[in-house]
């Protein structure tokens, strides 16, 4: 890994060279009183002074809806057109937060846990992540409790840490990052030896993952799930904004003799998600679905995929209409 300095005008020039290279650039934009990732052409469109985008960036590597393959029936024969990885354009994600970048690992772990997921992997391969370390946090953030930090490099190809002079410390983490640097190599100057941690928000850890894990391993039949989830209305908002939630639905879009098979977002918080055709539902009650949400992230994923299924971004807590605060619930389990 290499550390460099980039000035304010250097950032502008570099950004322009990325856009000019023809890659799609997505960045947080302030529109309709929400900060969301949108395709941008100019640095001036990019939002600043906010803690978090409402949605995570997972749609860039796991679109809300995507065609797996399409087909056409003709004279008793079926012509299949498979998903073409080459159809995915080169994409750069600008100003991603470390907790979002860290979401790529658990997401990819899920998509590849038995057989490799061609679609997801194609997106990941074509996507470069330029993250910005966090100088601000709010009461929902808890990355430091789940192996992350405001300056965590996991998932980033390059990380910028903004400096008071408008320039930034640039940590070039991966070959993909180097390729981005190569678009405008002269703007990257020698490292000025600045201490990055000075510019990061201070966020003490709120619980110990090991403790939580140990407690959760014995909590399957606990009454805590019902107590915590009574007010949950099962809306799924938490899963949709989460950078690591990967539940999906497979749907068919048929018109006469042609059709497409589509994968789209779903959520384990929905009663319908586990409903069998027989009418039996193994997760019949919201408390079971809430248990699934927490155990999957904090117990099953660490055990089976060797990665925590939560990056501490706090989005679910912010999005939940009835204040199901994940940090509060996890800490209360840890303290039990």
């Amino acid at each position: 890994m290499e550390t460099k300095y980039i000035s304010k005008s250097g950032i502008e020039q570099w950004f322009k060279s990325i856009v000019d290279s023809g890659k799609r650039v997505y960045a947080p934009v302030n529109s309709r009183d929400q900060i969301e990732f949108k395709r941008v052409k100019n640095l001036s469109e990019v939002a600043d002074e906010y803690v978090q985008t409402t949605q995570s960036i997972k749609a860039s590597v796991y679109p809300k809806a995507e065609v797996l393959f399409s087909y056409e029936k003709e004279h008793g024969k079926v012509h299949l057109t498979d998903f073409n990885p080459d159809s995915i354009p080169e994409t750069v994600l600008w100003k991603v937060h470390p907790c979002d970048a860290a979401g790529f690992k658990p997401l990819s772990a899920i998509f590849n846990w038995d057989s490799p997921d061609k679609l997801h992997n194609a997106h990941v391969q074509k996507t470069s992540v330029i993250s910005f370390s966090c100088a601000m946090a709010d009461e929902s953030c808890f990355c430091t409790s789940v192996n992350g930090s405001p300056g965590n490099l996991a998932g980033s190809d390059i990380q910028l840490t903004m400096l008071p002079d408008g320039g930034a410390i640039a940590e070039i983490v991966t070959p993909k990052g180097e390729a981005l640097v190569a678009l405008s190599p002269t703007v990257f100057e020698a490292d000025k030896g600045e201490d990055k941690t000075k510019y990061l928000v201070d966020l003490p850890a709120r619980f110990s993952l090991e403790e939580v894990n140990a407690k959760l391993n014995k909590a399957f039949n606990s009454t805590v799930w019902k107590e915590q989830s009574e007010r949950c209305i099962g809306c799924g908002a938490c899963a949709f904004v989460c950078p690591t939630c990967a539940c999906f639905d497979i749907q068919e879009d048929v018109h006469g003799s042609t059709g497409r098979r589509i994968r789209c977002w779903d959520a384990c918080g929905f009663g319908l998600f586990t409903l069998h055709t027989s009418g039996h539902n193994p997760r019949e009650h919201q408390s079971q679905r809430w248990r699934q949400r927490l155990l999957h992230k904090f117990s099953y994923m660490p055990a089976r995929l060797n990665v925590v299924g939560c990056t501490g971004c706090g989005r679910c807590s912010r999005a939940c209409p009835v204040d199901m605060n994940i940090l509060e619930h996890i800490t209360s389990i840890a303290e039990q």
Binding site: Y26, F37, R39, A65, E66, V67, S87
Partner: peptide, 11 residues
């Protein structure tokens, strides 16, 4: 929509 959503959808 779907084509558009996939090709030009929001990240």
């Amino acid at each position: 929509y779907l084509e558009k959503e996939v090709q030009d959808g929001e990240a």
